[in-house]
Design a protein around this nucleic acid. Structure first.
Length: 150
DNA sequence: GCCAACGTTGGC
DNA sequence: GCCAACGTTGGC
């Protein structure tokens, strides 16, 4: 069982959207490092849901991975901004996962708080200039996050 | 709105 | 295969 952090701009897709829809295919990731993390995910893994580009940015809730190795449908869709003309249905390039809403924190954990708690080594999202939208979270870091008073 | 970080593209 | 130019992300 592994832990992850998935980043989204709430104006694009928020924890409230996931709460309402209950599940979502995490589509649109077009970065190889992020995709490689998506490929490593297993059912039952937990993802920290992070809101970027808001004040303050931070972790706002939890999601569970419920289905893995899904070919991102948007790569085949010529109308999608995530369309990839280089792929074919036989040779997809972008795999992703389906996630399920777990909880929205009453008290989000803001980026300034995360920076106080963790080094960039422990939690990559606190590293200056980090633009990766999917990253892994070490188990001990995840435990510290999960035991915070909410 | 600014700009640092950094991934991608394309000329050579 | 190098690397400059360019585009995007995302904190501030």
């Amino acid at each position: 069982m592994s832990y992850w952090l998935i980043k989204s701009e709430p104006s694009d897709y928020s924890i409230d959207d996931l709460k309402q829809e209950k599940t979502a295919i995490w589509d649109g990731v077009r970065n190889y490092q992020a995709r490689n993390f998506l490929r490593q995910m297993q059912p039952e893994d937990i993802a920290f849901f992070y809101h970027s580009n808001v004040k303050p940015p931070g972790i706002v809730g939890l999601a569970r991975i419920i289905e893995t190795q899904i070919a991102d449908p948007t790569q085949f869709d010529s109308q999608s901004p995530y369309y990839d003309p280089k792929v074919t249905p036989e040779k997809p390039r972008w795999q992703t996962v389906k996630v399920e809403f777990v909880e929205k924190f009453a008290q989000p954990i803001s980026l300034p708080q995360l920076k106080q708690m963790f080094t960039a080594q422990e939690l990559a999202v606190v590293k200056k200039g980090n633009r990766l939208s999917v990253m892994s979270v070490p188990p001990e870091v995840a435990q510290r996050l999960l035991t915070l008073p909410k």
